[in-house]
Design a binder for these strands. Structure first.
Lengths: 340, 340
DNA sequence: ATATTACACTAAAACGTTTTGGTTGTCAAT
DNA sequence: ATTGACAACCAAAACGTTTTAGTGTAATAT
C-alpha cells in the first residue's frame, strides 16, 4: 500500500492534522515541524491520494471535452492539435482532461447531462459552436462552468475565444481579387455552425466591396472533411462556366478540392486557385502547398484550458472574451486566373 | 447540493447500508424495500458520486494514455482515430480516458511514474512500442496493468495487439514486383521503433525471395510525418539512378513523398509508384488516391480498451496477444515502372 | 496578579460511498 | 423448549484527505 498522511503522522509523532497543515504550508506549524514532516514525506515517498483530495474538495480537477464528430471514425488533424493544446495546458495547471466523442444531437447533449449530474468534471470546453447551441443553453441553465471556442447567434455573454473569420476571409478574397479573379466558388461549412455565417459574410462583403457579385449557385456546403470537399469541388468544377477560384472554409475541404481539380487534369495554382482555413501542419506539405489562413490552434486550446481553470477556481480572467485575427499564409495553391 | 444515499435513506426510513445494498441489488434486501428505494432514487434524481465510489473502491476507473509526440504541435490523423477508438470503448465500459502528450524520453517516463505513484489511473495503453521499451520495463517492474499496441524485441510476455507488418509489407512488395518494379526506395520509421524492424524485414524478404537486391543506400529513415516523408523523398528522387517505387512505412510519409515527386513534375502512379501503411481516411482522397495497407485503427483502439479494462477488473481475456493481418488496398498511386 | 495575545498543535467531523460483521425476529426441525 | 436456519436489516469502519473549532502553554501587556 502507498504511504498515507497517517503513516507520516506516526513516524514524526504528530497528529494527522499537523502533517496535513505542514505539507500545505499553513503558518500555524513551527518551521522545525514543517521541516521534519517534509523530510519524512520525501523519505517515505509520500504522494497525496488525488481520489481523497477530490472527494474532500468536492472538485474533480477534470476538464470535460466532448468532441463533435460524424460517425465513429474521426480523423481530423485540426482537433488532434487542438486537443494537445487543451491537454498540455490542463496538465500544467494540475487538471485532467476527460475526452469523449459524440455525434451532434440528442445523444451528445445527454453526455453533457450525465457528466454534470455525476459531477464528473468541473467544467467544459465547447467547440464548433452552433448558431443556436443546445450545449451552451443547457450549461447556462445548469449554471455549470464552461468556455467555448466560438460565438453563437444571440446572447454570447459567456467566456469564449474566437477568431475573426469575417476579417480572415476578407484577406483571402482581397488577395484573390488582386490576382485577377472575378468568379468565385465557395465550399462552406454546415450552415448551422456559427463560423459558417462569419466566413460567408466575410467573403460576400469583400466581393461586393469590389463591385463584383457572388453567384449563389457556386456556394455549396459540405461537412468539413476531405471527402466532402472533394465531392463538392467536383460539382463546382463541373458547371458550364466554372469558378477560377475556390474558397474552402477549412484546410481539409481544400485538400479534397485540390484532389478533385487534379483528377480533372487541372494544375492547382494555375488552372484554378484554391484556399483553405486553419493552417494545419499538412498545409505546408501538400502539393501544391496550400494558401490558407493561420490560426494558432495549439495556443487557442491552451488559452481555453487556462480560462476554464480560472473560472472553476473562481479566479478572475483578465479577458473573458477574446477575438483573434487570423493571418494570410500565401503558398502556391493560388495564381492569376487562366486567360481565355 | 446533489442527492446522496443518505437523503434516500431518510426518505424511505431505512439505513444508509440498506439503501446502498438495495441499489446494488444485494439479495439480503426484500423486494419491496428494493422497489421503494429505486423509486425514491429516481424521484430524487439520485446519481452516485463517482468520487466517493472511487475512493472507497480504491480504483480510479480511468485509463491512462500518454501519446508520444515530437514537439507540441501534434497533428496525426492516425492517432485521432486511435484515440476515438480507445475513448469510445472505454466510455461504454464505464471508464474514463486520461490523455496527455509527451516527447519520448525522460520526461515521458516520469509522466508514467507520476500517474502510477499518485494512483491516478488503473492502467495504461501504450503505443508505438520501441525495441527496448522503458515504459514497458517500468510498468512491468511496478506491476501495473497495461496493454500495448505492438511488441518489443524481447520478452513480450504481456498483453498486446499488433499487426503483422512483415506480412503486410510482403503484400506491398509482391504487388510492386508484379507491376514490374526492380528498384525500390524505402522510407522507414525511426529505427528504435519495433515496427520499423518488422516492416523492413517484410520488405527485404520479399525482394530477396524474388531474386532481387535492395539497395541499402535507398533505405532512409524519417519521423513518420508528412514533412519528413517529403524531405526524404526529395533525396531518394534526387540520386542519379532513382527508385521507380517508393515504399513509405506510413500514409503520412507517403503523402509527403507524393508532394516531393509532384513538385519535381512527376506523375505519381506513372513516373513513380508510392505506397503507404495504415489507410487513414485521407488516403482515399489524396491525389492520386493512395495504395496502402489497411489496419482497423478504430477497432484496434477499442480492443485495447477492452483488454485493459478486463485486466484491471481481473476478468480473464480470451486472447492475451492478438496479431492482425493488414490487407492491401489498391488505389491509383502505383503503376508499372516507366519505360526507358 | 490578571487578562490578552500568539504560538503550536490536535480531535473530530466532513466528503459519499461500500464492506464488514454483526443483530433481531420468525419459522421449521428436533 | 431448544436449536438451527434464514430473511431483513443496520452500526460502524473504511477509503485518505482537508477543515473546523478548538486546547494548552508561554510570553506580553495591563
Amino acid at each position: 500500500m502507498a504511504t498515507t498522511i497517517k503513516d507520516i503522522a506516526q513516524r514524526v509523532g504528530k497528529s494527522v492534522t499537523t502533517v496535513s497543515r505542514a505539507l500545505n504550508d499553513y503558518n500555524d506549524i513551527s518551521p522545525q515541524t514543517k521541516e521534519r514532516v517534509r523530510q519524512a514525506a520525501i523519505e517515505m515517498e509520500y504522494r497525496p491520494s488525488v481520489l481523497a483530495q477530490r472527494l474532500q474538495k468536492q472538485r474533480t480537477d477534470t476538464i470535460g471535452f466532448v468532441l463533435p464528430t460524424f460517425g465513429p471514425r474521426f480523423s481530423d488533424p485540426f482537433f488532434s492539435e487542438f486537443l494537445a493544446g487543451i491537454g498540455n495546458r490542463a496538465t500544467q495547471l494540475g487538471f485532467d482532461l476527460l475526452v469523449s466523442t459524440r455525434t451532434p444531437g440528442e445523444e451528445e447533449l445527454s453526455a453533457y447531462r450525465n457528466y454534470v449530474q455525476e459531477r464528473r468534471v468541473d467544467g467544459f470546453i465547447i467547440v464548433r459552436t452552433r448558431k443556436k447551441d443546445d450545449r451552451i443553453d443547457y450549461l447556462k441553465s445548469a449554471n455549470y462552468p464552461f468556455v467555448a471556442f466560438g460565438r453563437v447567434k444571440e446572447n454570447f455573454d459567456y467566456p469564449f475565444v474566437d477568431e475573426d473569420s469575417e476579417f480572415g476571409m476578407g484577406l483571402v478574397v482581397e488577395y484573390l481579387i488582386r490576382l485577377g479573379h472575378r468568379k468565385f466558388g465557395v465550399i462552406a461549412p454546415p450552415m448551422n455552425l456559427m463560423f459558417s455565417s462569419y466566413r460567408l459574410k466575410g467573403i460576400r462583403m469583400k466581393i461586393e466591396e469590389a463591385g463584383l457579385a457572388l453567384d449563389e449557385n457556386l456556394v455549396v456546403t459540405s461537412d468539413l472533411t476531405q471527402r466532402g470537399g472533394y465531392i463538392q469541388a467536383q460539382i463546382l468544377l463541373g458547371v458550364p462556366d466554372p469558378p477560377t477560384a475556390i474558397v474552402a472554409c477549412n484546410d481539409l475541404m481544400a485538400f479534397g478540392a485540390m484532389s478533385a481539380a487534379q483528377e480533372k487534369g487541372m494544375i492547382v495554382g494555375k488552372d484554378v486557385s484554391i484556399t483553405g482555413f486553419d493552417d494545419i501542419p499538412m498545409a505546408e506539405h501538400s502539393h501544391p502547398p496550400l494558401t490558407t489562413l493561420h490560426q494558432p490552434i495549439y495556443k487557442i486550446g491552451g488559452m481555453l484550458s487556462e480560462m476554464l481553470v480560472k473560472l472553476v477556481l473562481n479566479e478572475d480572467l483578465k479577458k473573458r472574451q477574446v477575438i483573434l485575427h487570423p493571418s494570410l499564409i500565401i503558398r502556391q495553391s493560388c495564381g492569376p486566373p487562366p486567360q481565355n
